[in-house]
Design a protein around this nucleic acid. Structure first.
Lengths: 339, 339
DNA sequence: TTGTAGGCGTTATCAG
DNA sequence: CTGATAACGCCTACAA
């Protein structure tokens, strides 16, 4: 590997001048600049990242810590982050598939000193643990995490999806179609998204003055299988619901399978709606109504926020807490439209 | 940030000894070792990665260059790579969504000096261009790329999926069900996967002594839309096929939509099969028979190969060229089974 | 406009 | 067992 010294020698200048050219800092005569560029290319010189980092204290890298999330969601969010980072000439140090707190903590440690900031997505990890494991001055953006705003302003910026509003809107839509008995298939209890969607469901029913008996509020765990079984249970009720709101699309897809297996027509006999609008939704039979989450935008905004935080260098004192809006996507499964 | 010097001072030893403790190189008396560890924790000292890299020449990082690939595939492959890398205490520097050669080249440059090796997935990028842009001694593993073995041994290890064998097996399976007129919806001509799958299709027909008229070999581009249109065209033939082999699942899904729209019963009237076994396949109506590609294993093997290459430090002269087996997944759409 | 030299935090080689 | 000290490759005052 050629070093800056080799280039300097070949171009007959000092290393300082070469450095200036590669950072276009300071004035350099056009002639020398060209000479240096030429020398660099023939030598295939590329500045060494580590040396640069050591010298400047900047890594030009953002760290990304993700839980073990599902296919579509994962790639979309990475796409958003990657594109934004690259546009700003930042690299991406990725660590994914963390399903427990220890794993995330370990990852945070190994990233220390290798990144200028961190984007952390942690379904179940509280701010306190985070703060304890991170250098006090490392910029961090929390993605769709439980942000503990009660204890005064947190150290971290955060981005969230409007789970509550999205769920409420969908359930109200179902109500507007005339459904009086609307069931929900819940997500994992400890999952914040799931909890907020459940709250949205209940708020909608309250607003619409509809009943929400316990028997139509079934447990699920975000998997297709759990949606499948929940749907079967609902069919066995003395009075089955006329609409099912599944807390995510996977469970909705599972529910559709179960209904099809039992020859229940959707949406004629029972309407079904999901949440997330994963790509499969539009290829389900019937096509699935859902609540779209702006996934790649989530990634983009997170990165923008983080870079801003990095570049403002601790000057910005206020923390950002943004909630991204969701949108209703009405398809065949809820009978409201033929799309 | 505390440095090694701070720890040394606090523990009343030289920095050399602290370094020894953190790399457990050389003998250090247990007492001093403990003193140093204690000092380090109270100071929250973590060795600086950049400095370490500069000094040792190792980054403990593998770079991953990916094209703009689809959801499921993307996350699975990353999962495989990430897990394997982490188990070996390596980091992941990721750059995705490269749809053209220039983008990949740029990414390769910016990764120089930041990684110990590279995993590159490049649908259309030839070894020559690669070699021209990479340091001669950087370990590289090519994932599912066109490997130009004709010009002597290439510099790179490579991993491929058995597209040929998978396609042939599926088409032979269709033939074994009694189909005599089997159509194919081809993928993009310049895509190597697509070409190999086409070869597999033809080989199967030859083995089964079946005819392969041009009119049942339609063009497609791996999108649902192209599958949809190809299926319509096939229906318009004087003599439509009794089975359709789509070169990937997306096109198969598109074909299913078209057949449903024309009230053609699958598999009774026409059998359909795809390739990739993306998750949607099992939720299609009818469920779609496909050829499963061992995606996450692809990532895992790639990483293992790369790490081996890195650790053998140029000692290993032979290049690895591995082909991962695919497996048939028979579901409803081809009528061979009810799964 | 260009050159000199100190420092960034580690590792590693040599002496003690 | 432990301590000096020279790299590692680059950036950046400070000088010229």
């Amino acid at each position: 590997m050629a070093t800056i010294r080799d280039v300097a020698r070949k171009a007959k200048v000092s290393i300082a001048t070469v450095s200036r050219v590669f950072n276009d800092s300071g004035k350099v005569k056009e002639a020398t600049r060209r000479r240096i560029r030429a020398a660099a290319t023939t030598l295939r010189y590329v500045p060494d990242g580590a040396a640069r980092t050591l010298s400047t204290g900047k890594t030009s890298t953002v760290g990304v810590l993700l839980p073990d999330i599902w296919g579509e969601f994962f790639s979309e969010i990475i796409r958003g982050i990657d594109l934004t980072a690259r546009n700003n000439e930042y690299h991406l140090l990725l660590s994914s598939s963390h399903d427990d707190q220890d794993a995330i903590e370990a990852a945070m440690h190994t990233m220390r000193g290798r990144v200028d900031g961190l984007i952390i997505m942690c379904p179940d990890l509280d701010s306190a643990t985070l703060a304890a494991n991170l250098p006090a001055d490392l910029p961090v953006v929390l993605l769709d995490c439980v942000v503990d705003k009660t204890k005064g302003r947190t150290r971290f910026d955060s981005l969230t999806v409007d789970n509550f509003g999205g769920a409420r809107a969908m359930v109200r839509h179902l109500a507007s179609l005339g459904h009086k008995r609307i069931a929900i298939i819940k997500g994992p209890t400890r999952n914040q998204d799931a909890r907020d969607r459940l709250r949205g469901y209940r708020a909608a029913l309250r607003q619409e003055k509809l009943d929400a008996p316990d028997e139509v509020q079934l447990n699920g765990d975000f998997t297709e299988a759990s949606g499948y079984h929940a749907a079967l249970d609902l069919l066995n009720l003395r009075q089955p619901p006329t609409a099912i709101f599944a807390s995510n699309d996977s469970m909705a897809i599972g529910a559709l399978s179960a209904l099809r297996a039992k020859s229940v027509r959707v949406p004629r006999d029972i309407a079904v709606a999901g949440f997330d609008d994963i790509p499969i939704a539009r290829y389900a039979t019937p096509t699935l109504s859902s609540v779209r989450v702006p996934i790649s935008e989530l990634g983009r905004r997170a990165t923008e926020t983080l870079l801003d935080s990095i570049q403002s260098n601790g000057r910005r004192r206020t923390r950002l807490h943004e909630t991204l809006k969701t949108t209703l996507v009405i398809r065949q499964s809820c009978g409201g439209d033929e799309n």
